[in-house]
Computed example of a mutant assay.
Amino acid sequence: MSLSTGELSEPLFIREDADVEYLVKDVNRVVHGVAYSGLHPSYEFFDDTLTKQFKNIALAMPNNGFYLRNYTPDWSSILFRFEGEGTPGDYYKFTKGGFNFLASSRDNIAPEQVHPMVGKTLQQEMA
């Protein structure tokens, strides 16, 4: 809805196969995008570069779901929690240099005990 005229427009973020689970917003309540629901959550942002970066992460980790947990104001560092094949719930910091392991949320579960997540992957959705 336009704040100046009150006119309604088409939705900015919509998918036929997933619901918007939550808004990605900062501490000032500025909305940057949305997170879609599912075993393999996906993200879409107003910034196309950021959307592409998240899609590339999903393509690089097709057997894992990754969940955005926090980020710096300039998005140069992003905190993710990964779950899925060989990953029982691990936290990683993403920077331009790649991923750095921080901690596991389930130290008592060995990675080889975690089976692949079953469901539609981003690769299947894009095919």
Results as ranks from 00 to 15, higher is better:
M1T: 15
M1S: 15
S2I: 06
S2C: 14
T5E: 05
T5F: 03
L8Q: 10
L8I: 10
S9Q: 08
S9P: 00
P11A: 11
L12I: 15
F13C: 05
F13W: 14
E16C: 11
E16Y: 13
E16T: 14
D17C: 12
A18D: 06
A18T: 09
A18P: 04
A18N: 07
D19Y: 05
V20M: 09
E21M: 08
E21C: 07
Y22G: 13
Y22I: 04
Y22M: 13
V24H: 07
K25M: 15
V27G: 12
V27C: 10
N28A: 10
V30C: 05
V30M: 07
V31R: 02
V31A: 00
H32E: 01
V34H: 03
V34C: 00
Y36I: 08
H40Q: 07
P41S: 09
S42W: 10
Y43W: 02
F45T: 02
F45V: 03
D48A: 11
D48E: 14
T49Y: 01
T51K: 00
K55V: 13
K55G: 01
K55M: 14
A58Q: 11
P62Q: 08
N63P: 07
G65W: 05
R69L: 15
T72G: 01
T72P: 00
T72K: 00
L79D: 05
P88M: 15
D90E: 07
Y91G: 01
Y92E: 03
K93P: 00
F101V: 07
F101H: 04
L102P: 01
A103D: 08
A103I: 13
A103H: 03
S104W: 04
S104P: 05
S104V: 09
S105Y: 06
R106D: 10
N108H: 13
N108K: 15
M117E: 01
G119F: 08
K120V: 14
T121K: 12
L122P: 02
E125N: 12
